[in-house]
Amino acid sequence: MAVATKTQSPAETRLAVRCTGVEKSFGSGQTRVRVLRGTDFTAETGKMNFLVGPSGCGKTTLISVIGAILTSEAGDVDVLGQDLRRMSNGKLADFRLNNLGFIFQQFNLLPALSAEENASLPLVAQGVGTKKAERRARELLERLGLAGQTKQMPKQLSGGQQQRVAIARALVHEPSLLICDEPTASLDAASGHTVMELLRDVALEGDRSVIVVTHDNRIFEFADRISHMADGVIGRTDEPGDEGFGKDDA
């Protein structure tokens, strides 16, 4: 299925994320593992930026650094014009709350909250009134095709529906950067396709940039750029028209 790609002229293209020479390791001494080895990565605004690669290559670590969850040991991490390495933990939390949206492989919805309550969480955390936040969440859930399920609890929803609630939660506060970690890994092919279509339709608004980490090659068709990662570094970044674009290295 062909997917319409939002086009920008080179002059319009701006970088939401610019990582240069990022280093990150875990453990110490002989057990120390260098996960990111001078990684360079960019993500453009208004585009679906895919980050692909085999398991253990450092994709999740890289988006954790970009997502202000982990701090790098070396290199520059510029996200939405902010140098994350200069921020304290508290500032990083505020940065995440106000500028970033996350979609996780396991959805990570709070089981005690209804769909609209889950979706409204970032707004509530920002201090927006509960009623206003839930109204905004409801509107978003309706756009995502969950008009009849806004009051349902996560366990009453299918995997695809839960992921749509997670998408609503990630977008409700209108972040400038959306980070998706294996958004279709827990879904069947049809649900995964639906989720990606919705993600593309709803998420790519304004100058928002979307980073999708995946090794599900069935959804490569939704990508505007694909960065291939291996052994802690980005090997190459393909764009539509490049030879082999959308092809899995494996």
Partner: peptide, 16 residues
Amino acid sequence: LRQYAALKAIGVRNGR
């Protein structure tokens, strides 16, 4: 714990 981790990832501070 995973729910708390999700809240932290969203940007909820430790103090909160």
